[in-house]
Amino acid sequence: MDSNIAPSQPSVPTVVSPPMLQNEPPAIAARTVNVFYGEKHALKDVTIDIYRRQVTAFIGPSGCGKSTFLRCFNRMNDIIETCRVTGRITLDGGDIYDPRLDVVQLRARVGMVFQKPNPFPKSIYDNIAYGPRIHGLTTSRKELDNVVEQSLRRAALWDEVKDRLSEPGTALSGGQQQRLCIARAIAVSPDVILMDEPCSALDPIATAKIEELMDELRQDYTIIIVTHSMQQAARVSQRTAFFHLGELVEVGPTEEIFTRPQDKRTQDYITGRFG
């Protein structure tokens, strides 16, 4: 059923291909993706499948290209003038780098949460309502209220903010702000959520809350998370991909990667020998 992905052979030999749930096609399939920043070759021939309704974690030492790769999935790299992407990435079988494809639509389907919480300087309500409003997802105020409430509930923030929805989103604590950003992404009802080190600015309690949340969201969304914490990757993800110097070294079920890594570099990294 997925004719345009199958033929291209993986060029990275270390890809551990058998997916966990073979009965479902991958949500996202990337084939020989290369990314250049001007002259700099930031990502080399990356081929990977991302599966539905699970959390995929990208790990690797700093500067290895995790964020760069993540930003390819909703074409956030387009806004960097020097950035050039080659290769093929499909979302549900459609090429997302098709010149006829609309990035606005793509980004509505592939939401993103950033490393640093970046709430808009607006009220909590308006922060959440922003996506539904611009995409015209609701027709009445009641419906919008409902979307806002549901999104905040799913992001486990509702109880903390339900009495102060009109306060500015920037007045929340760091952890709350990050959950607000997650709620903001959920409110658009995307298919995929990308998270770039969502917990790096947070304390352990806030981190625990967000990890819990990811586990919860996994029921409905395909999630990709970049993290520097091996523990976090182990806790929240079902599949893990290890990147090194712009290459995808190894990808597979999280348990296998952490217990039986195939590549020496992966082993060195997860045992803390470098990075």
Partner: peptide, 11 residues
């Protein structure tokens, strides 16, 4: 970051 946040939501 505010620009990115907005583009990331498909604006």
């Amino acid at each position: 970051s505010l620009r990115e946040g907005s583009y990331g939501l498909g604006a």
